[in-house]
Amino acid sequence: MVSTATSWRGPAAPASGPATGPDPTGSAPVPGFRDERLTGRPGESDELRLYRRMRFIRRFEETLLALFEEGVLNGTTHACIGQEANAVAVMEHLIAEDHVFSNHRCHGHYLARTGDAPGLLAEIMGKESGVCRGVGGSQHICAPGFKSNGVQGGIVPAAAGIALAAQLDGASRVSVVFIGDGTLGEGLLYETLNVAALWRLPLLVVCEDNRWAQSTPVAVNLAGSMAGRFTAFGIPVREIDSTDVMELRAAAGAEVEAVRGGAGPRVLLVHTYRLCHHSKSDDERPAEEIAARWPLEPLVVHGRRLTDAQRRTVDDEVDSAVAEVVATVRALP
């Protein structure tokens, strides 16, 4: 059964790639888009690449917020400013056949996974050429090896089901799901953890604890221990309080490889911080709390490993590349 299970999937499609319908790249504004200025120059050091990828996500999010203020975007958006290191660190260890399920705050995860800035921007701008033709918008994104949905908790069993598919195929694919501290309030999470542990599914839960669920702080939302919620099911938790992409990359690597090696589900619990508002201009958090976190943000922390000249070069390259993406996408119908 396992050996025949790949025949119906087709050779090229990843774990949960398109089963039907048009080729997603066929409708992309720039088919197969990949810009080295955003995702990494051949031969450059890991330190530079990681910085570049975080800068890319930061600049994309800042650009989106500016476009919102300009009035050219419809709906809403949830920026991940301050959390870029998590996405970049985890994606370092994934292969094309792995699958990522993300949530409402998915831009960083998507960009780190695919590099597809024009597809995402066109999507958020509601253009036909968007990665989901303008239907999904900011929170509902699909690309080979990547999906997101905007309902807390509900994505976790879907990721577990994708993990079960990998297990049934006898493949060593990993299914990763990104949740937040707010998701810990959803009961379906715990139903799924129980099943994932019982069936030893190749599922990595990355919990980004950014201290605030929309407007409600962890202290008001959460009784008991975060890690204890997972260990209660016998699921190992690696807890890390860091915005350092190098530390995070090492932690994520160990977790991804353990899951890939058949260790069953695992959790990477990252204590981090969201520097921007929840969606758009809805921030009542204490200004001094936010101010205290800016010196700890990932670009500052990791940026110290680079020279001023290196940072400036990468910053300039990313700025130009994102500006070109904006110009390209603006011109699309």
Binding site: R9, A15, P157, A158, A160, L164, N194
Partner: peptide, 27 residues
């Protein structure tokens, strides 16, 4: 392998089925 009894977790049954289906299975 393919007929699995589950805990009393209807949401997870439906959600895991969703993931299976997204990955090409027929739950």
């Amino acid at each position: 392998d393919r007929v699995r009894t589950t805990p009393i977790s209807e949401g997870a049954i439906a959600g895991i089925s969703a993931g299976l289906a997204l990955a090409g299975y027929r739950p």
